[in-house]
Amino acid sequence: MIENLGLDFISRTIRTTAVVLFIVFIYGLYYFDFYINLAILSGGIWSIVNMLLLSTLIRSALTPGEVDKMKVAGLALVKFPLLYVSGYFLLTSEIFDPLYLLIGFSILMAVVILKVIARALFGLDKKKLNTEPLQEAR
């Protein structure tokens, strides 16, 4: 179990995904067709926007304190129709191959899994937890 799974984990994941997408795009310009590259980039951006809106929606809807109902309703109205309609148009357009959109979409999931595995393997959270009492004692 990852102990130090703070709210900044998602923003760090999104930042890492954006960097990975940029690197893939630059390499892809040389090795693949432009439209394959564009499909991977679009899939990646789709997943990033999806994650951003999902996290904003959950943070505003599920809080121990007061919930701003108008904000939640507005976010839900933006997230679900806009994102699925844009996804539908991306998938049905002749320009993008759905397979490469899928690859782009999966990059964010791969980043999350790799980040969690790396934290668990290198024991980053345990190290942080072990140093906390020492720092307090000093």
Partner: peptide
């Protein structure tokens, strides 16, 4: 709440 929300957001995204 922060940790629970983060875990839930990741789960919901998956």
């Amino acid at each position: 709440a922060g940790k629970i929300q983060t875990a839930m957001i990741i789960g919901a995204a998956f």
